[in-house]
């Protein structure tokens, strides 16, 4: 059976095609102001990458914040359900899934089939690490890709509130004026974001193995802050931003049987 998952996230639309357990295509587009158009482009790219036509797909499921407006799909699965299902497929022993996206975060406790047992969601501004770190990296004139790595050079914890992406730049004014090294500011930012995510994780419990999915998992500074804060290792899959789309494709397969 060949299925597709379309994950309409706040920042990016991701599309994944799955045939049995083989991934045939992974594509993404920036969601921008027209996520439906972005989804159509990502879907077309996935068709061309896989050499399939739309008729070859047995079922297409959507997930993500924009799942209700997703083109091509008849049904959907929540972000919580998709993250859990996709992660358990990749790592059957994981029981706690942390999913941090562009503008939201969630923590999920799940069973061995990927069924959600408990979850916590935080959709407040800057709950997703990406928007916040983008703003601070810009303010410090550091490329975003370097910003996470920079924090690994710091050994000093300085407190930072880091609540609002809109006021993010004002958060770093004082440390910049105090000539705080950029690596210490970077670590403070990642620690502050991680502490809010960890507050959610503690609500569902840190169970057995822990995985981090979502695009923010590429940020080594955030992974490090999370591991220090939770005092546990975190598993990061190879394509963390596609785990939601994978979960949607798997759900499509299961519901079509």
């Amino acid at each position: 059976m060949t299925t597709a998952g379309i994950d309409l996230g706040a920042k990016f639309v991701k599309v994944l095609f799955l045939k049995d357990d083989e991934v045939l295509a992974r594509t993404q587009e920036r969601a921008g102001f027209e996520p439906v158009e972005a989804a159509k482009r990502a879907f077309a790219a996935a068709l061309s990458e896989s050499g399939l036509t739309e008729n070859d797909l047995d079922a297409i499921f959507a997930t993500g914040a924009g799942r209700q407006v997703s083109p091509f799909t008849k049904d959907s699965v929540t972000e919580v359900g998709a993250a859990a299902r996709g992660t358990i497929h990749l790592y059957p022993s994981v029981r706690t899934v942390i999913d941090v996206g562009g503008e939201e975060g969630r923590a999920v406790k799940c069973g061995e089939t990927g069924k959600v047992e408990d979850f916590a969601v935080n959709e407040q501004c800057a709950a997703g690490a990406r928007s916040f770190t983008e703003s601070i990296a810009r303010a410090l004139e550091v490329p975003l890709e370097e910003f996470g790595k920079l924090s690994l050079k710091s050994e000093k914890s300085i407190p930072m509130n880091a609540q609002c992406a809109v006021f993010a730049e004002s958060e770093v004014v004082s440390p910049v004026h105090a000539k705080t090294p950029k690596e210490d500011i970077s670590r403070a930012v990642h620690d502050a974001i991680a502490s809010r995510i960890i507050s959610m994780v503690r609500r569902v419990g840190i169970n057995n193995e822990v995985a981090l999915v979502g695009g923010v998992a590429y940020n080594p500074g955030f992974v490090d802050a999370l591991e220090r804060g939770m005092e546990t290792k975190v598993i990061v899959p190879e394509h963390p931003e596609y785990v939601g789309a994978l979960g949607a494709a798997l759900t499509a397969r299961e519901r079509s049987k």
Partner: peptide
């Protein structure tokens, strides 16, 4: 299933659990 909706901010943790 316990569903927690809310957030933590500088003043505390605010979650409604169902």
């Amino acid at each position: 299933m316990k569903a927690n909706y809310g957030y933590m901010d500088g003043s505390g943790e605010y979650y409604i659990t169902i």
